[in-house]
Amino acid sequence: MDFTGRTVIVTGAGSGIGRATTRLFAGAGALVLGVGRRREALAGTAGRDEAISVHVADLRDPAAPEEIVSAAVARWGRLDVLVNNAGATKIMPLAETTADGVADLFTLNVTAPSLLARHALPHLRATAGCVVNVSSTFGHRPLPGGAHYAATKAAVEQLTRSWALELAPTGVRVNAVAPGPTESEALTAAGLPAATVEQIKSDEAARIPLGRRGDPGEVATWILRLADPSATWLTGQILTVDGGLELV
Rank of each mutant, 00 (worst) to 15 (best):
V8D: 07
V8Q: 12
G12C: 09
G16L: 05
R19C: 00
F25I: 08
A30C: 12
V35S: 07
V35D: 04
G36Q: 07
R37I: 12
A43W: 00
R48I: 00
A51K: 10
H55R: 11
A57Q: 04
A63S: 11
E66N: 04
E67Y: 02
I68T: 14
S70H: 14
A71T: 12
A72Y: 12
A72T: 14
R75F: 13
W76Q: 15
N85A: 09
A86V: 09
A88R: 15
I91Y: 11
L94P: 00
E96D: 15
A103M: 05
N109I: 01
V110M: 06
T111K: 10
A112L: 03
P113R: 03
P113Q: 02
P113I: 00
L115C: 05
L115Q: 14
H119N: 09
A120L: 12
T127E: 14
V132C: 01
S135C: 10
S135K: 03
G139Q: 09
L143A: 11
P144C: 02
G146P: 05
A154V: 05
A155T: 13
L159A: 14
A164Y: 08
E166N: 01
P169C: 05
N175T: 06
A176C: 09
G180E: 02
T182R: 06
S184A: 02
A186K: 01
A190Y: 11
G191L: 12
P193G: 02
V197M: 03
I200C: 04
A206N: 13
R212F: 05
R212Q: 12
R213E: 14
P216H: 03
P216D: 03
A220I: 07
I223F: 03
L224S: 09
W233R: 12
T235V: 03
G236W: 02
I238M: 05
T240Q: 04
G243Q: 13
G244M: 11
V248L: 05
